[in-house]
């Protein structure tokens, strides 16, 4: 008994030392975490399959019970989106004309690494998941992770075969966002709940439920314009955002292998792969402005187009 108590006391001391060391030097144990996740990813893949299937089955039962309400909601949403389709086409034509008029440095195409969620943190104070795609698939820290609805988080640790994703709902998550319309700047913060918090809003005037929240791209880690969620409302002076994705059933995800475009001082320098230079056109200022004609510098037609806005 005395031996057990002494052993218990020693283990508690060692544990407290680990905690202090992890707090002071957060990267010290990161390799160990990545190695552990890498080593157990095959085990996770085996066991997470049935678990996810049961979870989705139970979720399907819940969805079946609400099928009428969901049907009505989808009908309304479909009608609204059909009405917006013509407006989107018109806006796309306007943007294409502006691209043709200006010297636009087209971002290189974004590639993706696909993966599946095989584990999560299993605890009450973090919101992270483990995805079975790592550095072997080109994954690196800081990369944005999306699903079919929008941004779900970013990579905070990448092993060879797996990577850990910090969800946007985690209390440590901070993402610079725009709230549209109006492009109000804010920081989207998580607090371990499903409703995210908008901090440091630049301007709350006119802000309303239903406004769309997208990434700004500041910092160069994430591409701009990624859909994050919809403003849910204000309570006690705090504006909340409902995420575009459902955190309780994340399954297949894509990790965006996004490279922030480098600044080019000399226009004669080579362009990033996938980009083509479009020469500036002299526009005659006249009562009737003629339609601009594009004359690409290289033979053949310019084929580049702005990257699609994922998650819209």
């Amino acid at each position: 008994m005395v031996t057990h108590r002494l052993s218990l006391f020693i283990m508690i001391i060692i544990t407290c030392a680990f905690l202090l060391l992890d707090r002071a030097e957060a990267q010290v144990f990161e390799r160990a975490r990545e190695a552990a996740a890498d080593a157990l990813t095959p085990v996770f893949e085996i066991f997470s399959g049935p678990v996810s299937a049961i979870r989705d089955f139970l979720g399907g039962i819940q969805g079946y019970l609400a099928v009428h309400e969901e049907n009505a909601r989808l009908r309304d949403e479909n009608a609204r989106l059909l009405g917006l389709e013509a407006e989107v086409q018109q806006l796309r034509r306007v943007i294409d004309r502006y691209d043709a008029l200006l010297t636009v440095q087209i971002d290189p195409a974004i590639s993706y690494a696909a993966g599946r969620v095989v584990a999560d943190d299993g605890g009450p104070f973090r919101r992270t998941v483990v995805v079975n795609a790592g550095t072997r698939a080109g994954v690196d820290r800081g990369q944005a992770v999306i699903d079919e609805h929008g941004l779900i988080g970013r990579v905070v640790g990448a092993g060879v075969e797996s990577s850990r994703v910090l969800l946007v709902s985690d209390l440590n998550s901070r993402i610079p966002v725009f709230v549209e319309p109006g492009r109000r700047r804010a920081i989207l913060a998580g607090d371990n709940s499903n409703l995210l918090r908008l901090d440091f809003l630049s301007n709350v005037e006119g802000l309303a439920a239903g406004d769309r929240v997208v990434t700004t791209g500041e910092g160069g880690l994430m591409p701009p314009g990624l859909s994050v969620g919809i403003v849910a409302g204000e309570r006690n002076g705090i504006w909340r955002v409902r995420s575009a994705t459902r955190f309780d059933s994340i399954d297949f995800v894509r990790i965006m292998r996004f490279q922030f475009p480098r600044e080019i001082d000399d226009p004669d320098m080579s362009l990033p792969p996938g980009a083509q230079r479009i020469e500036r056109q002299e526009i005659a200022i006249d009562e009737q402005m003629p339609s601009p004609e594009v004359s690409p510098s290289s033979p053949g037609e310019a084929e580049t187009s702005p990257p699609e806005n994922e998650g819209d």
């Binding site: 992890d22 552990a36 973090r126």
Partner: peptide, 18 residues
């Protein structure tokens, strides 16, 4: 082991379990 797999502070679950 739980701390390593959860990605949380190393030693937190160990302290709880002890």
């Amino acid at each position: 082991f739980h701390d390593l797999l959860s990605g949380g502070p190393l030693g937190l679950w160990a302290l709880v379990y002890l």
